[in-house]
């Protein structure tokens, strides 16, 4: 019995880390008031970048670094245009999502050609940089713990965190009290998207180290649903991230053992997200876990004086 629990903990570890990083990054960004609908596109692009960079450089740290930097650039771009200009967060996010999907194919396919040539010529290809996972899973849990505590401390206990929350609740008042809303949102989105990028890289490099066009699509939305079902709280996010990572990792075992169709398991994060959103709206949990009041609302500084 203890053996099966251990194999459960080990098996789910890499996907748990990937989901958690993406979800917590998403939550951090939305805490600052920017509606983030680009997550699935950038996650898919991140998966492709992690694959391409690891094929070209054969270096895992390089792949993670490159993915997080490019993802962070997308975050900064989104934060800048939605704060500086009076434009719809939803439209900016969805169009970036499309761009991410398209770019992912263009980035990943040429690398796939290189990788396939290597495999045909008898070399091991990407497999040589795959570390034997061994006790890696311990480090995955340590990483999750460190990120969870750091982000929680950042949001709840520091001045920057207070500024992020203020920018999400009421940017106009925050600005009047001396908060630089643009800077705060750039920070939250940059860090948030860097985490989403690292999550995508972990997903590609540690969870399922192969790539084909469309890989990662839909997983960004699962991270989105995980974050929403935990009210964007960095510590609470651990729970749905673990549950849905285990469901995804062991879905074939669950299907064959308990005769539950896999699609039911895939549906669960999304149903949980909507149920949680309704619960957070109507119960006293609202104080802590309801969405930021100005989430997705256009905040346009120049307009105030008119």
């Amino acid at each position: 019995m203890s053996g099966s629990i251990l194999s459960f903990i080990v098996g789910a570890s890499s996907l748990f880390l990937a989901y958690y990083l993406a979800a917590v990054g998403h939550g951090l960004m939305e805490k600052s008031g920017i509606l983030n609908l680009a997550i699935d596109g950038v996650f898919t692009l991140g998966v492709a970048i992690a694959f391409a960079v690891s094929v070209y450089t054969l270096s895992v740290p390089m792949a993670i670094l490159a993915t997080s930097i490019i993802a962070a650039l997308f975050g900064l771009m989104l934060a800048f245009i939605t704060t500086k200009l009076p434009i719809s967060h939803g439209a900016a996010g969805l169009s970036t999502m499309f761009l991410g999907y398209g770019l992912a194919a263009l980035v990943g396919l040429p690398a796939k050609v290189v990788e396939n040539k290597r495999l045909i010529s008898g070399s091991e290809g990407l497999a040589i940089i795959q570390p034997s996972l061994g006790y890696m899973w311990v480090w995955f849990y340590v990483a999750v713990f460190i990120v969870a505590v750091t982000i929680w401390y950042l949001i709840e206990k520091t001045k920057i965190g207070a500024a992020i929350r203020a920018a999400g609740e009421n940017p106009a008042s925050a600005e009047a009290l001396g908060v630089n809303v643009l800077a705060v949102r750039l920070f939250a989105s940059g860090v948030g998207y860097a985490l989403i990028g690292i999550g995508a890289a972990i997903f590609e490099l540690a969870y399922s180290p192969v790539w084909s066009q469309g890989k990662g699509m839909g997983y960004g939305w699962i991270a989105f649903a995980i974050s929403l079902s935990a009210g964007r709280h960095p510590i609470l996010t651990l729970v749905p991230a673990m549950i849905f990572a285990a469901l995804e990792k062991f879905r074939f075992i669950i299907e064959s053992t308990y005769n539950v169709p896999t699609d039911l398991g895939k549906m669960l994060p999304f149903v949980a997200a909507i149920a949680a959103m309704i619960i957070f709206m109507v119960t006293p949990l609202k104080r802590k876990l309801a969405p930021p009041k100005s989430l997705g609302k256009i905040y346009f500084r120049e307009e105030r004086t008119v």
Binding site: I87, S95, L99, G100, Y101, G102, A104
Partner: peptide, 19 residues
């Protein structure tokens, strides 16, 4: 993928330029 690139870049530019 190509359709996504077209749609993504036009919609993003449009969203920004509409300002």
């Amino acid at each position: 993928a190509i359709v996504d690139i077209f749609i993504g870049s036009i919609l993003l530019l449009y969203t920004i330029l509409i300002t």
